[in-house]
Amino acid sequence: MDFSVKKLASGAGLFLTRAVQFTEEKLGQAEKTELDAQFENLISRADCTKHWTEKIYRQTEVLLQPNPSARIEEFLFEKLDWKVPSRVTNAELLGQYMQDAAKEFDLGMPYGNTLEKVGECEKRLGEAEKEFLQTSAISFLTPLRNFLEGDWRTISVSLEYHIYSNTAPDFQETRPRNYVLSASASALWTEEVEKAEHELRIAQTEFDRQAEVTRLLLEGISSTHVNHLRCLHEFVEAQAAYYKQCHLHMQELQKELGRLPNAFALNSTNAIATPSMVTEGSSSPVETDTLKIEEVQAPATGTRKARVLYDYDAADSSELSLLADELITVYTVPGMDSDWLIGEKGNHKGKVPVTYLELLS
């Protein structure tokens, strides 16, 4: 019985080719395509890259969009080449609900005022999250997908067609031994053999060329790793910027809540933002009422220039208001909270938060 695995698997697609080749080799219907150790190592490295890139890509998708239905909808929109609708983040929706509730509860009351402030902050957090999602999708998720759908598909097709499909040609003369042909039949047979050998050489040359192309594609995996490394750095930077922005928004919210009437003690900035609580009875040269900011003198050495990252409104007369991108002089004094510095610009001085500054050398 002429049992052909290829006939059974015809039309099943490239993903079955390796299984077909392996089965035929086991059944003795095909000779194994021998590959050198370096080539095998390149294939193994490429398979490993594809495997882990798929896992990282899928989990990054879940991180950026936890809702499976939303992911499917966005996928369909992209495949249909439609514009993906802009989504309201959960933080934005929560902030809107809080602000709507504040209007119902009366903005003149403490609860209503607090709801309004917190709702506004939640909406800012939602906007920051939306910016982070967009940046991460462009700088990290898209390059991974481009590799899987582009470079890896090219490598895979080259492997399937030119290595695993066993296209390495072979030819054996099938004339029985001790069989004497007539002169005309012998000449015809010789002509057919020469023609077959010529086709064999052409096929072998094509196979060698395609094998070399596949080798070059596999060696390009190193460049893929370099590109993904750059994308990974950009992803980390996007996360760091996002969490830093969220931290600043929460600090501002804590300050605003601390200024509201009937504010709870835990809402003060120092209760949460300060890494170490000041022990009862201890005093700081800057925090005490007896020492005024104008009495603080800049040290002879230790002053530095700093660039302001964000606008900052002073909470009281001891602090210094800041504008983004302006340059100020900063320094510290003994016993001062590590989250704050003394800032000077022109004839004005006051406490400034470290997180709002980029210290320059």
Results as ranks from 00 to 15, higher is better:
Phe207Gly: 03
Leu217Pro: 01
Thr142Met: 13
Lys195Tyr: 13
Thr205Trp: 11
Ala196Met: 08
Arg124Glu: 03
Ala240Asp: 02
Leu125Gly: 05
Glu149Lys: 15
Lys195Gly: 10
Ser158Pro: 02
Leu188Arg: 14
Leu216Gly: 04
Phe171Val: 08
Ser222Lys: 14
Glu192Trp: 14
Ser223Lys: 02
Phe140Glu: 02
Ser165Phe: 14
His225Met: 12
Glu197His: 13
Leu125Tyr: 01
Ala183Arg: 14
Ser184Ile: 11
Arg153Ala: 04
Glu237Thr: 06
Val236Trp: 05
Glu219Val: 09
Tyr164Asn: 01
Asn166Tyr: 05
Gly220Asp: 01
Asp208Val: 12
Thr135Ala: 10
Ser156Leu: 04
Leu200Gln: 10
His228Gly: 06
Leu200Gly: 03
His198Asn: 12
Leu200Asn: 04
Glu173Val: 09
Glu199Asn: 10
Ala185Arg: 15
Gln134His: 15
Ser156Thr: 00
Phe235Ala: 07
Thr190Val: 06
Leu115Met: 11
Tyr164Gln: 01
Leu232Thr: 13
Trp152Lys: 06
Ala211Arg: 15
Thr190Arg: 13
Ser165Asp: 03
Leu115Ala: 00
Thr190Pro: 07
Ser158Trp: 06
Leu229Cys: 13
Thr167Leu: 15
Gln210Ser: 10
Arg124Leu: 09
Ser156His: 09
Trp189Ile: 11
Tyr242Thr: 02
Leu159Tyr: 04
Ala240Cys: 09
Val193Pro: 03
Ala168Trp: 08
Glu127Cys: 12
Glu160Trp: 01
Ser222Pro: 02
Phe140Leu: 07
Ser139Gln: 08
His225Asp: 09
Leu181Gly: 06
Gln204Trp: 06
His225Gly: 09
Asn166Gln: 10
Lys195Glu: 00
Tyr164Lys: 10
Val236Ser: 04
Asn166Ile: 00
Asn178Pro: 01
Glu122Trp: 08
Ala168Arg: 14
Glu120Tyr: 07
Glu173Asp: 03
Leu218Phe: 00
Ile163Met: 01
Ser182Phe: 05
Glu120Thr: 12
Glu120Trp: 09
Glu122Cys: 11
Asn113Met: 14
Thr214Asn: 05
Gly220Phe: 11
Phe132Val: 09
Thr174Gly: 07
Glu122Phe: 12
Ser222Leu: 14
Cys121Thr: 12
Pro169Asn: 05
Ser139Asp: 01
Asn227Phe: 08
Arg209Ser: 02
Leu216Cys: 08
His228Asp: 06
His233Trp: 11
Ser186Lys: 10
Ser158Tyr: 01
Leu148Cys: 03
Glu197Met: 15
Thr135Leu: 05
Val118Cys: 06
Asn166Ser: 13
Leu125Thr: 05
Leu216Ile: 11
Lys123Pro: 01
Trp189Thr: 07
His233Pro: 01
Pro143Val: 07
Glu127Leu: 14
Gln210His: 10
Lys195Thr: 11
Lys130Gly: 05
Asn146Phe: 07
Ser186Phe: 04
Tyr164Phe: 15
Gln210Pro: 03
Arg124Met: 05
Phe147Met: 04
Val180Lys: 12
Val193Leu: 10
Leu141Thr: 02
Thr174Arg: 15
Glu192Pro: 08
Glu197Trp: 09
Arg153Pro: 02
Leu125Cys: 06
Asn178Tyr: 06
Val226Trp: 09
Asn178Met: 09
Pro143Phe: 00
Gly150Leu: 03
Ser184Asp: 08
Ala241Pro: 07
Trp152His: 02
Glu129Lys: 15
Ser165Ile: 12
Leu133Val: 14
Val157Pro: 05
Asn166Trp: 00
His198Gln: 13
Ala185Val: 13
Leu217Ala: 02
Val193Asp: 06
Val118Lys: 03
Thr142Ala: 14
Leu133Glu: 00
